Simulated scan of single mutants.
Amino acid sequence: MQHSSARMKAAWICLLIASVGILIFGVVAAVAPGAGDEQLMRAGGVAATGMGLFGVLITLLPFRRGER
């Protein structure tokens, strides 16, 4: 049982790190779009921010508790 618990803890930590990375990228892309089509980059940044936030919430609430 402990081996499975360690795997689950490692899984939610990795998922949290990936989600936070996506969230940070989305915020940066939405705030400072850089060169090219600014509206398209801002839209992508807002979408990535939402996806990262959703991933963080899923990781911290139901996934960490082991819910299906």
Rank of each mutant, 00 (worst) to 15 (best):
Q2C: 02
H3Y: 11
S4I: 06
S4Q: 07
S5D: 05
S5P: 00
S5G: 00
A6Q: 06
R7Q: 03
R7V: 05
M8P: 00
M8D: 00
M8T: 00
M8V: 00
K9V: 07
A11R: 11
A11D: 08
I13H: 14
C14L: 15
C14A: 15
L15E: 12
L16Q: 12
L16N: 09
A18K: 01
S19L: 04
S19H: 03
V20S: 03
V20R: 01
V20D: 01
I22V: 13
I22R: 05
L23E: 06
L23G: 02
G26D: 09
G26N: 09
G26M: 09
V27M: 08
V28W: 03
A29T: 10
A29L: 12
A29W: 02
V31I: 10
A32T: 01
A32C: 01
P33F: 00
G34Y: 00
A35Q: 05
G36T: 05
G36M: 07
D37G: 03
D37C: 08
E38F: 01
Q39A: 11
L40P: 02
L40D: 12
M41H: 10
A43T: 08
G44T: 02
G45Q: 04
V46L: 08
V46A: 10
A47F: 10
A47S: 11
A48Y: 11
A48V: 06
T49Y: 01
T49S: 12
G50I: 11
M51F: 12
M51V: 14
M51K: 09
G52Q: 07
L53R: 02
L53F: 15
L53E: 06
F54R: 10
F54H: 09
G55I: 15
V56C: 14
V56S: 06
V56A: 08
L57V: 15
I58T: 12
I58V: 14
I58G: 07
I58L: 15
I58D: 13
I58N: 13
L61Y: 12
L61E: 08
F63G: 08
R64E: 12
R65W: 13
G66T: 08
R68S: 12
R68E: 13
